[in-house]
């Protein structure tokens, strides 16, 4: 007797749970020879709204954790990803990647998480400064997490693209809602399972599947989103998002390259400057 293969239902990830989209809609993903691979949720603006509520609720807890602890958790994501390497490689191949390239992508994504894990308690020192001022104040600037960040992940790189966009955001203490690649969403959903099993508090990472065509304007207009990071390429969408982002003066960053670096952390940070009064130590001599 032949065994029926058990197919996986690819669901979205909101607030530490895996619901289906509230809209009940889906699209069918097809493989190379147009065999159906999976039915994938077509998220609606309400799913996005729910995800932002979850992300907002998680923000206070996540941003107040010590950087070192966030680093441990990011490293844990990398560990989990490494452990499920085969599954990701298989999914990438299903989505059309060559076996060697697929393995390469999974390894780079894992390394990238480790890279940002290391930065979690170091970028503060890099981006902080003590500022010379002409009054008797100790004046210093430090980066602080900006809040809820919406991410439109790259279309062409299923796993690596998502990790590249997401890791620096959560490393910096923000919470995020990410829209996965429309044509290659399988790895994104499996990555959500990895995140779920990695001590990441519920709501810090939320992953939706769907189309940026439908969702980009809501990503940009939502008043409770503080920054928008976009790897999309559609010129009209980008212009529209820039316009809408002005509603609450969101920071918006459009990327074309999927590289890594500490400045990716900085884009979702706000710089807080403190003027701390100090005693005048002597004429002509500032205290600091």
């Amino acid at each position: 007797m032949t065994r029926l293969e058990v197919l996986k239902t690819y669901k979205i990830y909101i607030g530490g749970q895996f619901p289906r989209t509230e809209s009940g809609r889906y699209y069918t993903l097809t493989g190379k020879d147009s065999t159906p691979l999976a039915n994938v949720c077509l998220s609606s603006r309400k799913d996005f709204r729910n995800a932002v509520v979850a992300a907002r609720a998680a923000f206070a807890g996540w941003s107040s954790r010590p950087g070192f602890n966030r680093g441990q958790i990011l490293y844990r994501i990398a560990e989990m990803l490494e452990g499920r390497k085969e599954q990701f490689v298989a999914e990438l191949i299903l989505q059309g990647a060559a076996p060697k390239a697929a393995l390469e992508e999974v390894m780079t994504a894992t390394d990238r998480l480790v890279y940002y894990a290391g930065w979690c308690d170091k970028y503060q020192a890099l981006f902080s400064s003590v500022n010379p001022v002409a009054s008797s104040h100790f004046n210093f600037s430090v980066p602080e997490a900006t809040g809820v960040v919406a991410i439109i992940a790259p279309e062409s790189n299923s796993l690596l693209g998502l990790v590249t966009a997401l890791a620096p955001v959560i490393a910096g203490g923000n919470t995020c809602v990410a829209l996965a690649s429309t044509s290659m969403p399988l790895c994104a959903v499996t990555f959500a399972e990895v995140v779920h099993a990695s001590d990441v508090p519920a709501g810090v990472v939320n992953i939706l599947t769907g189309t940026s065509k439908e969702l980009h304007s809501h990503f940009a207009s939502h008043m409770d989103v503080n920054a928008l990071i976009c790897y999309g390429t559609d010129k009209t969408e980008i212009t529209r998002m820039k316009e809408l982002a002005s509603l609450n003066v969101k920071r918006i960053f459009v990327h074309t390259k999927e590289d890594q670096g500490p400045y990716h952390i900085l884009q979702a940070q706000e710089i807080k400057t403190t003027w701390h009064p100090i005693e005048q130590i002597g004429p002509g001599k500032a205290g600091y």
Binding site: V52, H218, S221, H222, M223, D224, N248
Partner: peptide, 9 residues
């Protein structure tokens, strides 16, 4: 307005 709101405002 058709725009999702934030508590901050």
């Amino acid at each position: 307005t058709g725009v999702y709101q934030s508590k901050e405002y």
